[in-house]
Design a protein around this nucleic acid. Structure first.
Lengths: 164, 164
DNA sequence: TATCTATGGATATATTATATACACGGATAG
DNA sequence: CTATCCGTGTATATAATATATCCATAGATA
């Protein structure tokens, strides 16, 4: 079970946008060149952040991407869900139903079958709870908190749009 | 980020083995036939459970798979890690290092770079903590607890090896 | 209105999950 | 002992998904 690299990519981009001087939009090729990743893929990733309302896209000359809201309002969970979606880690098949399917003998197990239905619900809710634990931890952390060691004086100093 | 279906498959198989009369070994084709899954893939999955010390394999006529230890000693985390491995959800690339790489101008950002190094460590540890939250929840649940609604009288009643 | 941007669709490639086939070694029932 | 039949290991095939590329189009603004 692995997380898409696009999540890490998104976090790095958001940090760059947070540091951008005057909150000016940064073009996709400036981001992809600097991070040495594919521009096309980065644009698709950025699109997900746009749809999630995390960044704003400006399709124009002198356009690009900028933050859509305060870095204090962007949690790691927001970024994670923007990229990975809000689906569950596990998706319930009806595998356990087949345990007692098509049986001809072994009839005196109806109460066992009922107990197993409870067990299936248990498994799903335990995994669901575990997933919630994971996501709640991500929700407690914002981009602002990530950047807490950047002094106020250093914000707004950098312009990624300068060639260098 | 999705979990392999082999995890659910493993849990169902473990339940079947737990209910097996006299703890007799059950052959792979009996398991795969009943669950209507590929026998080859199920055998590969079972092999992981063997390596993890969760089930025992007996390669012989009248052989098969049986539990290697008490269902009170098999947690959902044991099963999850047997299948998915003990690796991390996220694996650190050095993507963030490139933010300030190859820059010619923008020199007065060395302290920003230091702050970002801290931020990268933060992100990794937050995701790591979230993962630990997830896994700790799985560790609190055993197969025995899953089957707590199966009455003692119903254990040891079923023989999956009977044709039916 | 010209220009440059993000967008969307189609498609290609890489990686991983799932599935199949088969030769081999090993344990045990007889 | 030995024939039998099981799991193991390897190689390979297929499906699904992640990552990457290209290009035509729409949109915003200088």
């Amino acid at each position: 079970m692995k997380m898409s690299q696009a999540v890490e990519q998104s976090l790095v981009v958001l940090v760059m946008l947070a540091l951008q001087k005057d909150d000016l939009p940064v073009k996709s090729y400036l981001l992809s060149d600097r991070l040495e990743v594919s521009e096309s893929y980065l644009k698709k990733t950025m699109r997900k952040l746009v749809v999630a309302g995390i960044v704003e896209a400006i399709a124009s000359k002198e356009g690009g991407f900028k933050l859509a809201r305060s870095i204090a309002d962007i949690t790691l969970l927001d970024v994670y869900e923007a990229i990975e979606g809000d689906g569950s880690f596990i998706h319930a098949t009806q595998l356990a139903d087949r345990i007692f399917l098509n049986q001809e003998s072994n009839k005196p197990v109806e109460d066992v079958q009922e107990a197993l239905d409870v067990a299936v619900d248990d498994v799903l809710s335990v995994f669901n709870d575990a997933e919630q634990d994971f996501k709640q931890r991500l929700q407690r952390y914002t981009i602002a908190k990530l950047l807490r060691h950047v002094s106020a004086a250093d914000f707004e100093k950098i312009d990624w749009r300068q060639v260098n």
